[in-house]
Design a protein around this nucleic acid. Structure first.
Lengths: 204, 204
DNA sequence: AACTAATTGACAGTGACTCTCAGAACGGTA
DNA sequence: TACCGTTCTGAGAGTCACTGTCAATTAGTT
């Protein structure tokens, strides 16, 4: 699932690395769930995964990175570029988002929900994730520029990308207890509704 | 400028606190400018400001907080609520932003530019600032809800707020060298142009 | 089997941040 | 002025994320 499409055989070494990496993340997420993010030390994670603390940092540059790893926006961008050209950028992105979500199986979705919860709850993680959102603006802008044959540095293109990311941010924020007040809608539905609203010109 | 409107006299103690706080921030920003953010230790800042390291953390919970402190969005929200009711939310916010910027003198502007540069350059600071953007969505949503007599938890209101913040994010991002390619426009002009484009329905 | 390159663990060090405690400065009161 | 409760401050010890080095082990290759 990581670099299979090109390499015909993963090689024995790679398999071990992948297994170690998975073990670290699994134990880390479990410990975070059990005792909280801040209360869990890297040493604990390392011990649980049966590796040395140094090894932990060889696999994940920071403690935060154990949780953060998207793949999702990569999927979405890929799908975005394959949308029919007659769709408006927002409509195309909406369709791409649906497509990207559909590519995930139930297990992926569960894991996604779990890490999303952590991400939005823990301040440090949330901050990092927001920074990712910012990077995503650039990525979407570039994809949109390619699609519409414009310059990637075009101001209008960047602003459009910013609006897309902004409404997604707003749609996925479960903070401030407002999500609980909402009827229980899933992340995908909220994102879809948000993009639909942006497409409609943000009516109030 | 901090809690003057209520208290008739600051009191001697308060003045000392304010002076200490200002000294810490001033020396911190100077050191950051001279040697970079990461290369500057809290101990150095404390020594330069002639206080103990413990005192530093009594004034600023983290090293990051020395740089981050908005006041600007507070101004903007205040101005937003006083805009004529016949303006669309985006138009009203656009006017409010202009008004908030106009309230700053040249010195404030210089300091704002300086901290903005730092904020967008240093990853940790940028991440924290992005998190602030997220909080700002909620604030704008509440103000918009009040203005339009809607529920603060209304989905459409939140999404609108997200779009506003999103385009501002995109407009103020000087990363990836794209800003240098732009004609030298100032932050205010870029924000204004972004909001104008959102108001116009994000034409490409 | 021998050789090369990658992976690992032990170790030491830096720096942000927390906590505790004793002393000093402040603001009001007798 | 002298006193007292509150607040502010400095010192020191301790935790933990993160970095760098070095030697030992292991995988892949010839």
């Amino acid at each position: 699932m990581r670099e299979a499409p090109v390499a015909p055989r993963p090689g024995l070494r790679e398999r071990k690395k992948a297994r170690t990496r998975a073990a670290i993340r699994e134990h880390a997420l479990r410990l975070f769930r059990e005792q909280g993010y801040a209360a869990t030390t890297v040493d604990q994670i390392a011990e649980a995964a049966d590796v040395s603390p140094s090894t932990f940092f060889r696999y994940f540059p920071t403690k935060e990175d154990v949780v953060l790893q998207d793949e999702l926006d990569v999927l979405a961008i890929g799908a975005f570029e394959e949308q029919p050209i007659d769709l408006s950028p927002v409509a195309a992105f909406r369709a791409a988002a649906r497509q990207a979500f559909a590519a995930l199986d139930e297990e992926d979705l569960t894991k996604l929900r779990e890490t999303a919860e952590l991400t939005l709850t823990v301040p440090e993680l949330r901050a990092r994730a927001m920074d990712e959102y910012a990077r995503t603006i650039a990525v979407i802008a570039e994809a949109t520029a390619r699609r519409s044959g414009r310059d990637p540095n075009d101001f209008a293109v960047r602003i459009l990308a910013g609006a897309i990311v902004g409404v997604i941010m707003a749609a996925t924020m479960p903070w401030n207890k407002w999500a609980e007040a909402q009827p229980h809608t899933d992340m995908l539905d909220r994102i879809d509704a948000a993009l639909a609203q942006l497409e409609a010109g943000l009516p109030l």
